[in-house]
Amino acid sequence: MMCRLLHFTLLSSLALSLLWATPVMAQQSQRLGPWEVHYNAFNSTLLRPEMAQQYGLERSPTLATVNIAVLAAEKPGKPAQQVEISGIVRNPLSVEQKLEFDEVIEGEAVYYLAQVPFTNLETLRFFITIKQGNQAQELRFSEEFWRN
């Protein structure tokens, strides 16, 4: 487990540090079938302006950015996986919005980015489907957002 975490940290340090304006941001992970899925969602105002521009992301006090990386759980040290990824997000009133992910490849780092609007102090529930070949898994998580 520690080896996988270290690998993910090294693998994604360049990619993720480019996106985050603050040096420390909480990452979460879940084991889903053959994958270890690392994910986070944060207010887009935490993106540095030059990084937002480079990746075609918008910075707004009411726009969240979702970042997902998929690693092979049984093969520590193996690069991130390219997968098909899609999903929806639900607000507290169960209004759904489709997530549109963009794949970013930087060296061995592969990650997926999407953005979604929110209102102040709103908890969003994410339902993300990850597919590769005949394998499919669903990542579910919630995150509370507030205006910065």
Rank of each mutant, 00 (worst) to 15 (best):
L14G: 13
A15V: 04
A15D: 00
L18Y: 09
L18Q: 15
L19H: 01
A21Q: 15
A21R: 12
T22D: 14
T22V: 14
P23W: 07
Q28M: 08
R31P: 03
G33S: 14
P34L: 01
P34G: 09
Y39G: 00
Y39C: 01
T45Y: 11
L46W: 08
R48K: 13
P49C: 08
E50I: 08
Q53H: 12
Q53I: 11
Y55L: 12
Y55E: 13
S60N: 03
P61T: 10
T62E: 10
L63G: 02
A72G: 03
A73M: 02
P76L: 04
A80V: 11
Q82I: 14
Q82N: 14
V83L: 02
I85E: 03
S86I: 00
G87M: 10
G87T: 15
I88E: 08
R90L: 13
N91C: 04
N91G: 04
S94G: 15
E96C: 07
D102P: 02
E103G: 15
E106Q: 09
G107M: 03
E108W: 05
E108K: 06
Y112T: 04
L113A: 12
A114C: 11
Q115K: 03
Q115N: 08
Q115G: 04
V116H: 05
N120C: 05
E122Q: 12
L124Y: 00
I128E: 07
I128Q: 07
